[in-house]
C-alpha cells in the first residue's frame, strides 16, 4: 500500500510511542526525584544499567518481564546509592550524578560484555491497530504494554503527589527541607526513597530499550535518553502527566528526521536530527522569565536556585 507523505505522519505517530516510552519512564523517575528536592543527573547510567540487567535476566530466565523487574531493581539500587551519598552535608547532587553516570555505564559495559552476542526473549507487543486495514498504521500502533504502564504510572503519580499524605510529604521536603524538619519529617529518608523509586522507573525505561525497541544490548544503545530526562522534566513543569506529553513530543520529533528522508527530503539531516534539542531550548527560552519562578518547581532544587 502506498502511503507516501502520510508515511511521515505515521512514522511520527509510531515514533512518538516507540521512542517516547523510555523517555516517559526516565522523566517520570526524574520528576519524582526532583519533587523531593534532589536532582539526579546520573539517570543515564541507571538507564544503561537497567538495559543491561533486563537483557541479561531475560536471557537467563527466559522471561522478559522478570528482566524488566530486575532492571527496575538495579535502577533502584543506583538511585538509592546516589541519594545516600547526597544525603551527607555539602555533597553536590549534580556532581554525584555525573559520577554515577560514569559508574553506571561503566558497570553495565563491564558486566554486559557476555550479553552482546546472544539474543534474549523480547517483550511481547499489543496490537492496537487491528481496526485499521492500513498495514503501516497497524505497525505504528503495535505497542508494548510498558507504554500503557507508563501512562498509568504518570496518572497515578500525578494524583498521588497531589492528593495523598505521601505526596504531600514529598512535596514539602522538596519545597523546604527546614520546614519539613520542623514538621518532624525524615527529610533524608524521604529523599532516598524518592530517588530510589525514580531509579526504579529509569531502570525500567532502560529495559524497554534493550527488550523491546530497538531490542538490542550494545554499548551504543543509549544516545543520551537518560541525560535528557532533566530537560524533559523542566519542559513538563514537574507534572507527571506533562512528562507523558513531552515524551511523546520528543519521540515524534526524533522520528521526524529518518521519516523525512524516506520520502525524499534528504538535505540537512544532522539539523533535523537535532530538532528535539533545539525545540527544548526554544521552549525553555519562551517559557522562562526572570520575573517569576516557574509553576510547580520544587524550591529545594539546586537547578532552580
Amino acid at each position: 500500500m502506498e502511503v507516501g507523505w502520510w508515511g511521515v505522519l505515521i512514522a511520527v505517530l509510531g515514533g512518538a510511542i516507540r521512542i517516547g516510552t523510555p523517555f516517559l519512564f526516565v522523566s517520570l523517575g526524574e520528576c519524582l526525584t526532583e519533587k523531593s528536592g534532589r536532582i539526579n543527573l546520573g539517570l543515564e547510567g541507571t538507564l544503561v544499567m537497567g538495559a543491561m540487567t533486563g537483557y541479561a535476566v531475560s536471557l537467563h530466565s527466559g522471561s522478559p518481564w522478570l528482566g524488566v523487574l530486575c532492571a527496575g531493581l538495579a535502577g533502584m539500587v543506583l538511585g538509592a546509592l546516589h541519594s545516600w551519598i547526597c544525603s551527607f552535608q555539602r555533597v553536590n547532587d549534580i556532581a554525584v550524578g555525573i559520577a554515577m553516570m560514569l559508574f553506571g555505564t561503566g558497570l553495565a559495559f563491564f558486566l554486559g560484555k557476555p550479553y552482546i552476542q546472544p539474543s534474549a526473549p523480547r517483550l511481547p507487543s499489543i496490537d492496537l491497530g487491528a481496526w485499521s486495514d492500513i498495514p503501516q498504521l497497524q505497525a505504528a500502533l503495535q505497542i508494548n504494554a510498558l507504554f500503557l504502564v507508563g501512562i498509568v504510572v504518570a496518572v497515578v503519580l500525578g494524583w498521588m503527589l497531589k492528593n495523598t499524605a505521601w505526596g504531600l510529604k514529598v512535596r514539602v521536603v522538596g519545597e523546604s527541607a527546614d520546614a519539613a524538619r520542623a514538621l518532624g519529617l525524615p527529610v533524608d529518608r524521604i529523599r532516598i526513597l524518592s530517588t530510589a523509586q525514580g531509579g526504579f522507573l529509569a531502570g525500567i525505561g532502560g529495559s524497554y530499550l534493550s527488550l523491546y525497541y530497538p531490542f538490542n544490548w550494545s554499548e551504543g544503545l543509549s544516545s543520551g535518553q537518560g541525560l535528557m530526562a532533566v530537560a524533559l522534566v523542566i519542559f513538563a513543569r514537574w507534572q507527571p502527566i506533562g512528562c507523558l506529553w513531552v515524551s511523546l513530543l520528543w519521540g515524534g520529533a526524533a522520528a521526524l528526521g529518518p521519516s523525512l528522508q524516506s520520502v525524499g527530503v534528504t538535505g540537512g539531516y544532522y539539523i533535523f536530527n537535532a530538532i528535539p534539542y533545539i525545540m527544548t531550548l526554544a521552549m525553555m527560552i519562551i517559557t522562562c522569565s526572570p520575573k517569576r519562578t516557574l509553576v510547580g518547581v520544587p524550591r529545594e532544587l539546586t537547578v532552580t536556585r
Partner: peptide
Amino acid sequence: WSLPVREAEATNSLVDQG
C-alpha cells in the same frame, strides 16, 4: 556509525514506504 534507535526508526520508515 552507531545510533540504534535511529537505525530502528529508519528501518520502520522504510518498511512504511513499502
